[in-house]
Design a protein around this nucleic acid. Structure first.
Lengths: 112, 112
DNA sequence: CAAGTATACCTAGAGCCGCTAGGCATGGAC
DNA sequence: GTCCATGCCTAGCGGCTCTAGGTATACTTG
C-alpha cells in the first residue's frame, strides 16, 4: 500500500482529526508527528512540513492543543504539543463527521 | 446520525469520489445527485448546489464523466451525466486513497 | 576540526475549492 | 395568476495545502 498520494483536499480533510488523534495518545512535537503519520499509514501518507506547522498553529489558536518549549535529552529545543479538553471534544466531533462521510461512501460503493 | 456538518475540507475530499461512485451505478443529473447524496448519507450530508455544479464541470473537463441534455418525462430539460472509462479508473484510485487515509485514522483512533 | 546530514522550527505566495448569494427559466398546485 | 419546487449556472471571498525557500543546531565522518 505504498504511495497512494492523496489529493490535497484529502490531506486537508484528515489533517485535523489525525493530529488530534495522535496527540490524544500523548504529547508530541511537530517533526516527530511527520514520522508518526508516516508510520501509522504504513508509509502510504507523507505530510509536508509546510502544511503541518500551520495546522498546529491553527489548532493552538483555537485552543484545541497547547504547546510547551522543552529541551530534549538530545539537547535540541522542541515544541511539544498536548491535546486540551476542548481538543478532545473536537476530536470526537471530527471523528463522527468522518465516519458519517465514510459510511456514505461505503453505501455508494457497495450498491451496484 | 442527523446533521453532522462536515467541514468544507471534508466535503472537498469526498465530493469527487462520491459523485463518481453514484454515477458508476447509472447516469444521473445534478439536482437529483443532491437528493441521492442526502439519501445515501441517511440525511447526515447535505450538499450545496454552489459546490456541486463546479465539481461536475471539472470532472467533465477532465473526461471522467460525460453529459447529455435530455428532456425528462416531466417535460423539464435535464443535463444527465454518465461516468466514462477513465472515470471508473479514477474512481478506483480515489477509493484506494480514501481507504488508505481511513485506515490511518483508524490506527490513530484505535491505539490508546 | 571541517563539512555534510539529520533534526527542528518557521513563513510568503500561488493555486484550488467550497460557501454565500445571488440569477434565470419552467412546470405544477391552488 | 401566484407561489413553490425543479433545474441549471456563476462571481467573489476566505481558507487551506503546496512549493520553495530560510534559520539554527547536534551528530557523524574524514
Amino acid at each position: 500500500m505504498t504511495n497512494v498520494l492523496p489529493s490535497k483536499e484529502l490531506v486537508a480533510a484528515s489533517s485535523r482529526p489525525l493530529v488530534l488523534a495522535v496527540l490524544a495518545r500523548g504529547e508530541d512535537y511537530g517533526y516527530a508527528l511527520l514520522r508518526e503519520v508516516e508510520r501509522l499509514s504504513g508509509g502510504a501518507l507523507s505530510w509536508q512540513e509546510g502544511m503541518l506547522y500551520p495546522v498546529l498553529h491553527r489548532l493552538e489558536r483555537e485552543g484545541l492543543i497547547a504547546s510547551t518549549w522543552r529541551v530534549a535529552e538530545t539537547g535540541r529545543r522542541r515544541k511539544y504539543y498536548a491535546i486540551t479538553k476542548r481538543g478532545q471534544e473536537a476530536l470526537a466531533a471530527e471523528r463522527a463527521t468522518w465516519e458519517a462521510v465514510s459510511a456514505t461512501l461505503r453505501n455508494a460503493w457497495g450498491a451496484t
